[in-house]
Design a protein around this nucleic acid. Structure first.
Length: 472
DNA sequence: GGCTTAATAT
DNA sequence: CATATTAAGC
């Protein structure tokens, strides 16, 4: 299994693609009951597996809850409370799946808006069966954007506007990753991944490893590929390294030009080391070397003062075989979210369902120091320093919240999961966050239970076999 | 193709 | 902000 490495995901996909378009799980969102049911029937007719909801909020909740997995979302544009664009936006932000917009309006502007916001397709009502037959292509395209293909070019439709295939690859990058070990825990049935690929967080450990590698190779000869090999961290890509290397070199440049300055401090503190432990020496020739290679001791020492941040390493060793396997993996899935989520939902009530790919125990409290991103730890350090300088970290709580929340999509998730009430728990400060509008939107999202929805709507199973009269 | 760098996006 | 992605020149 482990040997399959990066290919495994592909293989899984292949395996699941036998009768591929069939049974595609499609979430249909439309406030118009008639449209909804018609669409549902049509989709059924195409052998898809539609799920219908009548409003965007509900749709979001379902998507976020992860109880169902979906391959595709079709949403109407015009809807009360939250319209299709908002929904689209939110989905783009949080998830990784194609969205088809639906509207009576074929106004170019509207269509453009949809496309610009990352819609995979824009269909104009009334929709016909033949238009739906091929929507699976979007799923396919989404799954491997690189495979540019002529899938379904027949059925040229008059009213349909499609973004170029390239569109998506630009929007969403190419490498579906995710298919690694941490995924094996849950449904292997789920081919499509609903969650985006988290970015790599350069933790102290990771950075140290990076430094070690560079040190070993020699700064001058350190190129991404070599560093990557030496670091031997499976989820890192050459690009990751390149990016980090770029940043690192930039930093070195700064340091060299401005020695008295605080660039050095900055860098170090961003990895939570105060240089007093001489982690790095700047040798005369501008070469860096790590004097301590014991990475684990580092976090312990440096977090020492920060009680709850420190102990993580030990816990970890339960899983850790002495390799570094864990150190990036955890943040990779976790990002900043859990700490936020925890704040919102109360400690006993982590947003488990959201991270349905991840075993809880890894996600939250077990590895605090890994969960906290640099900025968090940075902040902690900052706070501590303030304190030691005699200042009192006044509104510590809200500062934290702002920092962590502002940095990510956590708020979205948390709010959705805790019933959308996040705002009342977390006082947001205006203007602090670039995602403020988004948050506002999400504040509106009320708590529904999925069950409510279904019982509410009482959507009979339409026999998709009946001819549907949809056009006037 | 890979590497670096800069610019730009998220 | 930190990281990712892209483009361009080598």
């Amino acid at each position: 299994m482990a040997t399959m490495g990066g290919d495994r995901r592909q293989m899984m996909e292949d395996a699941a693609e036998d009768k591929f378009p069939e049974g595609l799980r499609i979430l249909v969102v439309d406030d118009d009951r008639v449209c909804l049911t018609v669409l549902e029937a049509l989709l059924r007719r195409c052998k898809y597996q539609p799920t219908t909801v009548m409003d965007a909020k509900t749709a979001l909740r379902m998507l976020m809850a992860g109880k169902q997995q979906f391959d595709l979302v079709i949403t109407d544009v015009r809807m009360p409370d939250m319209d299709g664009f908002k929904l689209l936006k939110l989905i783009r932000l949080e998830m990784d799946l194609p969205v088809i917009m639906l509207s009576v309006d074929c106004d170019k502007k509207v269509v453009m808006k949809g496309i610009e916001h990352g819609a995979s397709d824009f269909m104009v009502k009334p929709v016909r069966t033949h238009e739906l037959k091929n929507i699976w292509q979007h799923v396919q395209r989404w799954r491997n954007p690189k495979a540019i293909s002529h899938i379904s070019d027949h059925d040229s439709d008059v009213q349909r506007v499609q973004p170029a295939p390239a569109e998506k690859s630009k929007l969403l990058g190419n490498k579906r990753n995710v298919g690694d070990d941490s995924n094996k825990h849950n449904e292997s049935t789920c081919v499509s991944t609903t969650h985006r690929k988290p970015r790599v967080t350069w933790t102290l450990q990771l950075h140290n490893k990076f430094l070690e590698a560079i040190n070993q190779i020699g700064l001058d000869r350190a190129v991404p590929k070599k560093v990557l090999e030496l670091m031997n961290v499976d989820y890192l890509s050459r690009e990751n390294i390149a990016s980090h290397l770029q940043k690192y070199r930039l930093h070195l440049k700064k340091v060299n030009s401005n020695h008295s300055g605080d660039a050095y401090e900055r860098w170090n503190s961003s990895y939570n080391m105060n240089n007093k432990d001489n982690f790095m020496h700047n040798h005369e020739h501008g070469r860096w070397s790590a004097s301590s290679s014991d990475t684990s001791s580092w976090s312990t020492n440096n977090y020492g003062a920060i009680g709850h941040l420190a102990p993580a390493m030990n816990t970890q060793s339960n899983f850790d075989m002495g390799s570094y396997l864990h150190d990036g993996r955890v943040p990779r899935y976790v990002g900043k979210q859990p700490s936020d989520a925890r704040r919102f939902t109360g400690f006993g009530d982590p947003p488990v369902s959201l991270y349905n790919n991840i075993p809880n125990e890894i996600m939250l409290d077990e590895f605090p120091s890994f969960n906290y991103s640099n900025s968090y730890a940075d902040l902690m350090c900052g706070k501590l320093m303030e304190t030691s300088k005699g200042k009192t970290p006044s509104n510590r709580q809200s500062s934290f919240a702002n920092t962590t929340v502002g940095g990510g999509r956590s708020l979205v998730a948390s709010q959705l999961l805790d019933g959308g009430d996040g705002a009342s728990i977390l006082p947001m400060q205006e203007g602090t966050l670039d995602q403020q509008p988004l948050n506002d939107q999400l504040n509106e999202i009320n708590a529904f239970s999925v069950d409510d929805i279904f019982s509410n709507m009482n959507l009979e199973d339409f026999t998709g076999d009946d001819p549907i009269v949809e056009e006037a």
